[in-house]
Nucleic acid binder design. Structure first.
Lengths: 146, 146
DNA sequence: TATAGACCTAGGTGTAACACCTAGGTCAAG
DNA sequence: CTTGACCTAGGTGTTACACCTAGGTCTATA
C-alpha cells in the first residue's frame, strides 16, 4: 500500500501517515526504483494502533515509548496503564481550567449586554474588558460575599 | 518601571512582558544610556488590559486588533463583543470534544482494570488499546444497541 | 575600589502534532 | 505523448510564551 491508500483505509490523511513515518513510528519499505514508500499489513496495524492511542489522549512520545517495548516483544500493558493515569490527571485538570474560563466568558457576554459602547480614554482602554480585570472581579467577589 | 517590577506589579513574568514588548503590544521607552526599557503607567494599563483579555480567552491577534482601534481613539466595544462570541463558540466546541475524550479515557481506565497484561503478538500490539479501536468500539456500540 | 549578585539586553531555540506548500520526479490511461 | 493523479524530501506556519546564551549594567558591600 502507498501512502494515500493507507491513509484512506484508516480514515486519516496522507500527511499524517507521512508525519508518523518521518518521526519513525511507521517503517515502510522503500521502493528501489522510485523511492515510493510501501506499507504492509504490519505497518497498517501499527497505524491503527497509533490512531486509537491518539484517540485516547496518548501523546506521540507515549506511543514511541510503547513501541520501544513492543518492538522487543515486551508487554506494553503496564506502561499503557501508567500513561492513561497520567493523561487523565492532565486532561481533568485542563478540563476544569477550561470550564472556569468558559464560565467567565459566558458571564462576560451576559454582563456586556447591558453595557453601552464607550470610546477609550486616559483611564480605560475598554470598560467591558476592565469590568473583568483581576482587581475588578475580586471587588465583585467581595461585594457578593458581603 | 523596568521589566521585572512591572511584571511583579501585575503578577506576571518578565518573559511575558518582554514577549508582549517584542510583538509590539507594549511600547516602553528605551533608556538612552543602557538600553533598558521603561514602562510608564499607560503601558502598565495596557499590560493589565492584555492580561484580562487573555484571561477571557482573547488571542494575541484579537488584542492587537483591539489596540489598532483604541490607538486611534475608536471604541473597541463592538469588536470586543464580536470576539467574545467567536471565542465562546470555539471554546464550547473544544470543551465538548475534550469531555468526549475524557469520558472515553475514563471508560478505558475502568475497563482495563479487569483485563490482564499480555505480550504483543502478530495480530495485536496491545489488546488494551485494541479494545478501543474505531472498529472495536463500533462493534461494542452495535452490541450494546442490540 | 573591586567585586559579587541581581538585573538588563537581543536573539535564538523549544514546545505539539500535524497542515500546507514547494519543486520536482513517477505512473497509468486515453 | 500528454494529462492528471500520485509520489518524494524538505521547509514553513501554527500558539504564546518559557528557557537559554552571551554579554553588558547596576548596586551594595567589604
Amino acid at each position: 500500500m502507498k501512502v494515500s491508500s493507507l491513509a484512506k483505509a484508516l480514515n486519516t490523511t496522507p500527511d499524517t501517515v507521512r508525519h508518523y513515518t518521518k518521526i519513525g513510528l511507521l517503517k515502510p519499505i522503500k521502493g528501489l526504483e522510485n523511492g515510493y514508500k510501501f506499507y504492509n499489513s504490519a505497518q497498517q496495524q501499527r497505524l491503527a494502533f497509533i490512531l486509537t492511542a491518539r484517540h485516547l489522549g496518548f501523546t506521540i512520545k507515549d506511543i514511541t515509548e510503547i513501541f520501544n517495548e513492543t518492538d522487543k516483544n515486551n508487554p506494553a500493558c503496564p506502561i499503557v496503564r501508567d500513561i492513561i493515569e497520567k493523561r487523565l490527571v492532565e486532561i481533568e485538570q485542563k478540563f476544569q481550567q477550561m470550564q472556569t474560563m468558559m464560565t467567565l466568558m459566558q458571564q462576560a457576554r451576559e454582563q456586556w449586554r447591558n453595557m453601552p459602547d464607550r470610546a477609550p480614554d486616559s483611564h480605560s482602554i475598554c470598560h467591558l474588558i476592565d469590568a473583568f480585570s483581576q482587581t475588578q472581579t475580586s471587588l465583585l467577589t467581595t461585594k457578593i460575599k458581603e
